[in-house]
């Protein structure tokens, strides 16, 4: 299946794009997707410990099992206010 991924804030600059699509086999967790993603975007791998992950509009952790139609977002710690 293919999973669209959006990079927010300065993660887009580090990735060199604001969106990409990752092809993964089923079943795959967020961690599995990140492993593929970090190979293509190594600059993001250095920030993995502070990376926030959302699927749709909900936060998820690396163990979340992806399903068709999911949209993953990766971003740095938030800074509203």
């Amino acid at each position: 299946m293919t999973i669209p991924v959006t990079f927010w804030s300065y993660f887009a600059e580090l990735a060199g794009c604001s969106e990409t699509v990752v092809t993964v086999s089923e079943p795959t967790t967020v961690d599995g997707l990140l492993a593929s993603l970090y190979q293509a975007h190594p600059a993001l791998a250095e920030l993995r410990r502070s990376t926030l992950i959302a699927v749709g509009v909900e936060y998820q952790d690396g163990g979340y099992v992806l399903k068709p139609g999911d949209h993953v977002s990766l971003f740095p710690p938030v800074q509203g206010g």
Partner: peptide, 30 residues
């Protein structure tokens, strides 16, 4: 406010006087 700063996906980028000559991103969702 405290909780917002933990979970609401909003980010800020400082703009210096030099940066200010460059237009900000017109797309509010980026």
């Amino acid at each position: 406010i405290d909780e917002m700063k933990q979970v609401v996906p909003i980010w800020k980028k400082p703009v210096t006087a030099v940066d200010a000559s460059i237009p900000s991103n017109p797309n509010p969702a980026s």
